[in-house]
């Protein structure tokens, strides 16, 4: 039973990640490969604060989100001037820089040794120390994220995001400061990715930089594409599919190294199949056809 709960927790965490990625890639049409970096910032901030100060889970989340938002401004303000291809490469480069910092800033992150022994989260004095309680926490965070994303995307703000995705020149010609919208949604997306990172750190209780690489950014993007970009539920569906499907590999006798490779082959194949035959994914609205 614990195994299924753990799968559900991971699905919720990656669901939050995928929804946050969709804000940028699916709603605003900005293909970013820096998301694992924000995920890592949230994880490390939460882990560091909790271990060194024993603070509440909420404090760790807020600190991680604030750092992620600040870093997102550093990334987005200059790179959003770049056109589509170069923006992707710019985010790629940023992800490599973030990984380099996480891997080499040993005084804070302990480098490749990672941070272990991350304690269970405490919320207003209540310790969350069973898997069921953690699942409830993760689901509450997921519902919160879904609510905020729904508010944003169904508002005039969301309408302008969709216009920017389809034709930024049209949006500018009608008085929309498109840079403000893109920077703002990047910041929100980074904050949610950091929230997912905080949950991840407390769930796995050990983090190291290898969980926050370019490959992980590509995985998150795959979840958005397979589930369907530009919709509220698509990224969540994609996260559930890509987290639970490879779990089936455990039952066919593959070693963990083989399973890791097969998992990546499945991700890559699904990504290709979706983009070739169903660019809007399983339940999405946007097919990256700009």
């Amino acid at each position: 039973m614990d195994y299924f709960i753990q799968c559900a927790v991971l699905a919720a965490i990656y669901g939050i990640l995928a929804i946050s990625m969709d804000l940028v890639a699916g709603q605003a049409g900005l293909l970013s490969i820096a998301h694992a970096g924000f995920f890592g910032i949230g994880a490390y901030a939460s882990a560091f604060l909790t271990l060194h100060t024993g603070c509440d889970f909420a404090v760790g989340v807020i600190a991680g989100a604030c750092i992620a938002v600040a870093v997102s401004f550093i990334l987005s303000l200059p790179t959003l001037r770049l056109n589509d291809d170069y923006f992707v490469i710019g985010t790629f480069a940023f992800q490599m820089i973030l990984f380099s910092v996480l891997n080499n800033w040993t005084s804070v992150t302990r480098g490749s040794l990672g941070i272990r022994g991350i304690p269970s989260p405490t919320i207003f004095g209540c310790k969350i120390d069973t898997s069921t309680e953690f699942l409830i926490l993760a689901c509450c965070c997921l519902l919160f994220v879904l609510f905020v994303v729904y508010r944003i995307t169904s508002s005039p703000f969301g309408r302008v995001l969709h216009a920017i995705r389809e034709d930024e020149v049209f949006a500018k010609a009608h008085g929309k400061n498109t840079l403000y919208f893109k920077v703002a949604i990047f910041a929100v997306s980074a904050a949610f990715a950091a929230l997912a990172g905080s949950l991840f750190a407390h769930d796995i209780t050990y983090i190291d930089p290898t969980s926050f690489t370019v490959m992980d950014s590509i995985l998150i993007l795959s979840m958005v594409i397979i589930g369907g970009a530009g919709s509220l539920w698509g990224p969540l569906v994609g996260a559930v599919v890509l987290i639970t499907l490879p779990e089936a590999l455990r039952f066919i006798g593959l070693s963990s190294a083989e399973a890791a490779n097969v998992r990546q082959i499945i991700y890559g194949s699904l990504l290709i199949i979706m983009m070739m035959f169903r660019p809007r994914g399983l339940v999405g609205k946007y097919g990256f056809n700009k």
Binding site: I152, S155, F157, F170, H174, A184
Partner: peptide, 15 residues
């Protein structure tokens, strides 16, 4: 989309 000065286009107001 073309309507000017929409309050709902500010992030906080959207929320």
């Amino acid at each position: 989309l073309a309507r000017p000065n929409q309050k709902g286009e500010r992030l906080l107001s959207a929320l």
